[in-house]
Protein backbone atom coordinates (compact mmCIF):
# COMPACT_ATOMS: atom_id res chain seq x y z
CA UNK A 1 0.00 0.00 0.00
CA UNK A 2 1.48 3.31 -1.04
CA UNK A 3 1.75 6.27 1.29
CA UNK A 4 -0.89 8.22 -0.63
CA UNK A 5 -3.52 5.46 -0.32
CA UNK A 6 -2.69 5.05 3.36
CA UNK A 7 -3.27 8.74 4.06
CA UNK A 8 -6.52 8.80 2.05
CA UNK A 9 -7.83 5.74 3.89
CA UNK A 10 -6.93 7.23 7.27
CA UNK A 11 -8.65 10.52 6.37
CA UNK A 12 -11.79 8.62 5.39
CA UNK A 13 -11.73 6.49 8.55
CA UNK A 14 -11.16 9.53 10.79
CA UNK A 15 -14.05 11.36 9.21
CA UNK A 16 -16.39 8.35 9.57
CA UNK A 17 -15.46 7.92 13.24
CA UNK A 18 -15.75 11.66 13.89
CA UNK A 19 -19.12 11.72 12.10
CA UNK A 20 -20.40 8.86 14.24
CA UNK A 21 -19.22 10.55 17.45
CA UNK A 22 -20.85 13.85 16.48
CA UNK A 23 -24.13 12.26 15.39
CA UNK A 24 -24.34 10.38 18.70
CA UNK A 25 -24.19 13.77 20.43
CA UNK A 26 -20.95 13.19 22.35
CA UNK A 27 -19.32 16.50 21.35
CA UNK A 28 -22.43 18.59 22.01
CA UNK A 29 -25.97 19.14 20.77
CA UNK A 30 -26.70 18.45 17.10
CA UNK A 31 -27.76 21.53 15.06
CA UNK A 32 -31.43 21.93 14.25
CA UNK A 33 -32.63 20.48 10.98
CA UNK A 34 -35.77 22.62 10.88
CA UNK A 35 -35.75 26.36 10.06
CA UNK A 36 -33.67 28.16 12.65
CA UNK A 37 -35.40 30.84 14.78
CA UNK A 38 -33.35 33.74 13.38
CA UNK A 39 -34.08 32.57 9.83
CA UNK A 40 -37.76 32.32 10.65
CA UNK A 41 -37.71 35.82 12.13
CA UNK A 42 -36.23 37.29 8.94
CA UNK A 43 -38.48 35.19 6.72
CA UNK A 44 -41.55 36.52 8.52
CA UNK A 45 -40.44 40.13 8.25
CA UNK A 46 -39.50 39.66 4.59
CA UNK A 47 -42.92 38.37 3.70
CA UNK A 48 -44.61 40.90 6.02
CA UNK A 49 -46.53 38.13 7.75
CA UNK A 50 -48.19 38.95 10.99
CA UNK A 51 -47.96 35.52 12.57
CA UNK A 52 -45.00 36.79 14.63
CA UNK A 53 -47.54 37.04 17.44
CA UNK A 54 -47.85 33.26 17.51
CA UNK A 55 -44.19 32.39 16.97
CA UNK A 56 -42.51 35.28 18.78
CA UNK A 57 -45.01 36.65 21.32
CA UNK A 58 -42.69 39.49 22.35
CA UNK A 59 -42.14 40.82 18.84
CA UNK A 60 -44.90 42.66 17.04
CA UNK A 61 -44.57 43.10 13.31
CA UNK A 62 -46.07 46.49 12.56
CA UNK A 63 -45.91 45.85 8.82
CA UNK A 64 -43.57 48.76 8.23
CA UNK A 65 -40.26 46.98 8.03
CA UNK A 66 -40.76 44.67 5.12
CA UNK A 67 -38.16 44.55 2.35
CA UNK A 68 -40.46 43.35 -0.43
CA UNK A 69 -38.05 40.55 -1.21
CA UNK A 70 -38.73 36.85 -0.97
CA UNK A 71 -34.98 36.33 -0.71
CA UNK A 72 -33.76 36.82 2.83
CA UNK A 73 -30.08 37.24 1.90
CA UNK A 74 -30.70 40.02 -0.63
CA UNK A 75 -33.07 41.76 1.77
CA UNK A 76 -30.45 41.70 4.53
CA UNK A 77 -27.60 42.70 2.20
CA UNK A 78 -29.28 45.66 0.53
CA UNK A 79 -32.03 46.72 2.92
CA UNK A 80 -31.49 45.89 6.58
CA UNK A 81 -27.68 46.04 6.33
CA UNK A 82 -27.39 48.16 3.18
CA UNK A 83 -24.52 50.38 4.31
CA UNK A 84 -22.32 47.36 5.08
CA UNK A 85 -22.70 46.17 1.50
CA UNK A 86 -22.07 49.67 0.16
CA UNK A 87 -18.70 49.83 1.94
CA UNK A 88 -17.90 46.24 0.93
CA UNK A 89 -18.43 47.19 -2.71
CA UNK A 90 -16.23 50.25 -2.22
CA UNK A 91 -13.43 48.08 -0.79
CA UNK A 92 -13.57 45.84 -3.87
CA UNK A 93 -13.61 48.93 -6.09
CA UNK A 94 -10.51 50.47 -4.50
CA UNK A 95 -8.63 47.15 -4.47
CA UNK A 96 -8.97 46.96 -8.24
CA UNK A 97 -7.91 50.60 -8.63
CA UNK A 98 -4.59 49.52 -7.06
CA UNK A 99 -3.97 46.81 -9.64
CA UNK A 100 -4.93 49.12 -12.49
CA UNK A 101 -2.39 51.66 -11.24
CA UNK A 102 0.28 48.93 -11.05
CA UNK A 103 -0.34 47.46 -14.53
CA UNK A 104 -0.74 50.58 -16.63
CA UNK A 105 -0.55 51.03 -20.38
CA UNK A 106 -1.96 53.37 -23.01
CA UNK A 107 -4.04 52.45 -26.03
CA UNK A 108 -1.02 52.99 -28.31
CA UNK A 109 1.07 50.51 -26.33
CA UNK A 110 -1.82 48.08 -26.36
CA UNK A 111 -1.89 48.31 -30.17
CA UNK A 112 1.85 47.67 -30.25
CA UNK A 113 1.64 44.47 -28.23
CA UNK A 114 -1.18 43.22 -30.44
CA UNK A 115 0.94 43.73 -33.55
CA UNK A 116 3.97 42.10 -31.97
CA UNK A 117 2.09 39.04 -30.73
CA UNK A 118 0.55 38.45 -34.15
CA UNK A 119 3.97 38.76 -35.80
CA UNK A 120 5.52 36.29 -33.32
CA UNK A 121 2.80 33.75 -33.89
CA UNK A 122 2.97 34.14 -37.67
CA UNK A 123 6.74 33.59 -37.68
CA UNK A 124 6.34 30.38 -35.68
CA UNK A 125 3.54 29.19 -37.95
CA UNK A 126 1.00 29.14 -35.09
CA UNK A 127 -2.38 30.76 -34.71
CA UNK A 128 -3.85 32.39 -31.62
CA UNK A 129 -6.04 30.38 -29.29
CA UNK A 130 -7.12 26.74 -29.42
CA UNK A 131 -8.61 24.73 -32.31
CA UNK A 132 -11.62 25.84 -34.35
CA UNK A 133 -14.00 23.37 -32.65
CA UNK A 134 -13.04 24.62 -29.19
CA UNK A 135 -13.36 28.22 -30.30
CA UNK A 136 -16.88 27.73 -31.69
CA UNK A 137 -18.08 25.89 -28.59
CA UNK A 138 -16.49 28.49 -26.32
CA UNK A 139 -18.34 31.27 -28.13
CA UNK A 140 -21.67 29.52 -27.47
CA UNK A 141 -20.76 28.91 -23.81
CA UNK A 142 -19.69 32.55 -23.43
CA UNK A 143 -23.15 33.68 -24.46
CA UNK A 144 -24.88 31.28 -22.05
CA UNK A 145 -22.65 32.29 -19.13
CA UNK A 146 -23.48 35.94 -19.66
CA UNK A 147 -27.21 35.17 -19.86
CA UNK A 148 -27.09 33.02 -16.70
CA UNK A 149 -25.17 35.67 -14.77
CA UNK A 150 -27.71 38.31 -15.80
CA UNK A 151 -30.51 36.00 -14.65
CA UNK A 152 -28.80 35.43 -11.28
CA UNK A 153 -28.50 39.17 -10.72
CA UNK A 154 -31.89 40.25 -12.08
CA UNK A 155 -33.78 37.60 -10.09
CA UNK A 156 -31.72 38.43 -7.01
CA UNK A 157 -34.65 39.73 -4.99
CA UNK A 158 -36.86 36.73 -5.80
CA UNK A 159 -34.63 33.65 -5.93
CA UNK A 160 -31.18 32.85 -4.49
CA UNK A 161 -28.58 35.04 -6.10
CA UNK A 162 -27.75 38.70 -6.32
CA UNK A 163 -25.30 41.22 -7.65
CA UNK A 164 -22.07 39.71 -6.34
CA UNK A 165 -23.01 36.16 -7.30
CA UNK A 166 -24.05 37.30 -10.77
CA UNK A 167 -20.91 39.39 -11.16
CA UNK A 168 -18.54 36.58 -10.21
CA UNK A 169 -20.38 34.19 -12.55
CA UNK A 170 -20.03 36.80 -15.29
CA UNK A 171 -16.27 36.97 -14.64
CA UNK A 172 -15.85 33.36 -15.80
CA UNK A 173 -16.82 34.42 -19.35
CA UNK A 174 -13.79 36.65 -20.10
CA UNK A 175 -11.57 34.02 -18.44
CA UNK A 176 -12.78 31.35 -20.86
CA UNK A 177 -12.39 33.75 -23.77
CA UNK A 178 -8.79 34.50 -22.81
CA UNK A 179 -7.93 30.81 -22.45
CA UNK A 180 -9.61 29.54 -25.61
CA UNK A 181 -9.73 32.51 -27.98
CA UNK A 182 -6.82 34.76 -26.86
CA UNK A 183 -7.21 38.14 -25.19
CA UNK A 184 -7.53 40.01 -28.46
CA UNK A 185 -10.94 38.43 -28.99
CA UNK A 186 -12.14 40.29 -25.87
CA UNK A 187 -11.01 43.57 -27.44
CA UNK A 188 -12.83 42.73 -30.65
CA UNK A 189 -16.18 42.09 -28.96
CA UNK A 190 -15.90 45.30 -26.96
CA UNK A 191 -14.58 44.05 -23.60
CA UNK A 192 -11.87 46.72 -23.63
CA UNK A 193 -10.11 47.83 -20.47
CA UNK A 194 -11.48 51.36 -20.59
CA UNK A 195 -15.04 50.21 -21.33
CA UNK A 196 -14.92 47.95 -18.28
CA UNK A 197 -13.49 50.81 -16.19
CA UNK A 198 -16.44 52.96 -17.25
CA UNK A 199 -18.95 50.18 -16.47
CA UNK A 200 -17.70 49.53 -12.95
CA UNK A 201 -17.51 53.24 -12.14
CA UNK A 202 -21.09 53.51 -13.39
CA UNK A 203 -22.08 50.61 -11.13
CA UNK A 204 -20.70 52.25 -7.99
CA UNK A 205 -22.17 55.64 -8.98
CA UNK A 206 -25.63 54.11 -9.43
CA UNK A 207 -25.38 52.53 -5.95
CA UNK A 208 -24.27 55.83 -4.41
CA UNK A 209 -27.01 57.81 -6.15
CA UNK A 210 -29.73 55.32 -5.20
CA UNK A 211 -28.55 55.52 -1.60
CA UNK A 212 -28.49 59.31 -1.48
CA UNK A 213 -31.58 60.24 -3.54
CA UNK A 214 -34.11 59.83 -0.67
CA UNK A 215 -31.94 61.93 1.67
CA UNK A 216 -31.43 64.71 -0.90
CA UNK A 217 -35.13 64.71 -1.75
CA UNK A 218 -36.01 64.98 1.93
CA UNK A 219 -33.66 67.83 2.92
CA UNK A 220 -35.33 70.04 5.50
CA UNK A 221 -37.97 67.53 6.50
CA UNK A 222 -35.73 65.16 8.55
CA UNK A 223 -38.03 62.37 7.42
CA UNK A 224 -35.93 60.59 4.82
CA UNK A 225 -33.69 57.57 5.06
CA UNK A 226 -30.41 56.71 3.40
CA UNK A 227 -30.72 53.56 1.23
CA UNK A 228 -34.50 53.56 1.66
CA UNK A 229 -36.02 50.52 -0.01
CA UNK A 230 -39.75 50.43 0.67
CA UNK A 231 -41.82 53.46 1.64
CA UNK A 232 -42.22 54.12 5.35
CA UNK A 233 -45.54 55.39 6.55
CA UNK A 234 -43.92 58.02 8.75
CA UNK A 235 -41.51 59.25 6.06
CA UNK A 236 -42.57 62.16 3.86
CA UNK A 237 -40.46 60.97 0.93
CA UNK A 238 -41.99 57.90 -0.68
CA UNK A 239 -39.36 57.22 -3.29
CA UNK A 240 -40.51 53.83 -4.51
CA UNK A 241 -44.13 52.87 -5.16
CA UNK A 242 -46.14 51.67 -2.15
CA UNK A 243 -46.28 48.05 -1.13
CA UNK A 244 -48.92 45.76 -2.54
CA UNK A 245 -48.11 46.56 -6.14
CA UNK A 246 -45.62 43.74 -6.50
CA UNK A 247 -42.25 42.59 -5.30
CA UNK A 248 -40.26 44.26 -8.08
CA UNK A 249 -40.94 47.80 -6.98
CA UNK A 250 -38.32 48.27 -4.29
CA UNK A 251 -34.80 49.52 -4.87
CA UNK A 252 -33.21 46.07 -4.43
CA UNK A 253 -33.30 45.14 -8.13
CA UNK A 254 -31.46 48.34 -9.10
CA UNK A 255 -28.80 47.75 -6.47
CA UNK A 256 -28.32 44.22 -7.80
CA UNK A 257 -27.90 45.42 -11.39
CA UNK A 258 -25.35 48.04 -10.28
CA UNK A 259 -23.43 45.46 -8.22
CA UNK A 260 -23.37 43.11 -11.22
CA UNK A 261 -21.75 45.87 -13.27
CA UNK A 262 -19.22 46.77 -10.57
CA UNK A 263 -18.12 43.20 -9.74
CA UNK A 264 -18.28 41.69 -13.25
CA UNK A 265 -16.40 44.54 -14.90
CA UNK A 266 -13.90 44.68 -12.02
CA UNK A 267 -12.96 41.01 -12.35
CA UNK A 268 -12.79 41.36 -16.15
CA UNK A 269 -10.24 44.19 -15.84
CA UNK A 270 -8.07 42.03 -13.56
CA UNK A 271 -8.07 39.17 -16.07
CA UNK A 272 -7.34 41.45 -19.02
CA UNK A 273 -4.37 42.91 -17.12
CA UNK A 274 -3.07 39.51 -15.96
CA UNK A 275 -3.19 38.07 -19.47
CA UNK A 276 -0.60 40.53 -20.78
CA UNK A 277 2.99 39.20 -20.65
CA UNK A 278 5.18 40.59 -17.88
CA UNK A 279 7.99 41.70 -20.22
CA UNK A 280 5.58 44.23 -21.63
CA UNK A 281 5.06 45.93 -18.26
CA UNK A 282 8.75 45.72 -17.41
CA UNK A 283 9.56 47.60 -20.61
CA UNK A 284 7.03 50.33 -19.82
CA UNK A 285 8.26 50.77 -16.25
CA UNK A 286 11.90 50.87 -17.39
CA UNK A 287 11.00 53.50 -19.98
CA UNK A 288 9.27 55.59 -17.31
CA UNK A 289 12.31 55.23 -15.06
CA UNK A 290 14.57 56.59 -17.81
CA UNK A 291 12.20 59.45 -18.62
CA UNK A 292 11.82 60.62 -15.03
CA UNK A 293 15.45 60.10 -14.07
Amino acid sequence: MSKKNLVITSITLTSIVLGLIISLGVLGPIPLTSIRPLGLFYALFMANRNITIEVFPLIVNPGNFWAASTEAITAILWDYRGLDTLFETSVFFFAIIGSIALFRFTEKEEHEIRKKTHENHASEGKYLGLSLITKTITKIILFTIIVVSAAIALHGQLTPGGGFQGGSAFAVAPLLAIAALSRFYLDDIGFKKNTMLLLRTMGLLIIALLAIIPVVAGIGSWQAYIMQNQPKEWAIIQLFPPKGLGVLLGSLVYYNIAELLAVGAGFTIIFILLSIPEEFYKKIIEKEGVEHG
Binding site: I152, P160, F164, Q165, G166, S168, A169, A171, L175
Partner: peptide, 11 residues
Protein backbone atom coordinates in the same frame (compact mmCIF):
# COMPACT_ATOMS: atom_id res chain seq x y z
CA UNK B 1 -23.26 28.08 -3.67
CA UNK B 2 -23.58 30.62 -6.47
CA UNK B 3 -20.69 32.78 -5.29
CA UNK B 4 -18.44 29.87 -4.23
CA UNK B 5 -18.89 27.95 -7.49
CA UNK B 6 -17.82 30.94 -9.56
CA UNK B 7 -14.97 32.07 -7.32
CA UNK B 8 -13.70 28.72 -5.98
CA UNK B 9 -13.80 26.67 -9.16
CA UNK B 10 -13.46 29.35 -11.84
CA UNK B 11 -11.68 32.51 -10.76
Amino acid sequence: VLAYAAVGVGV
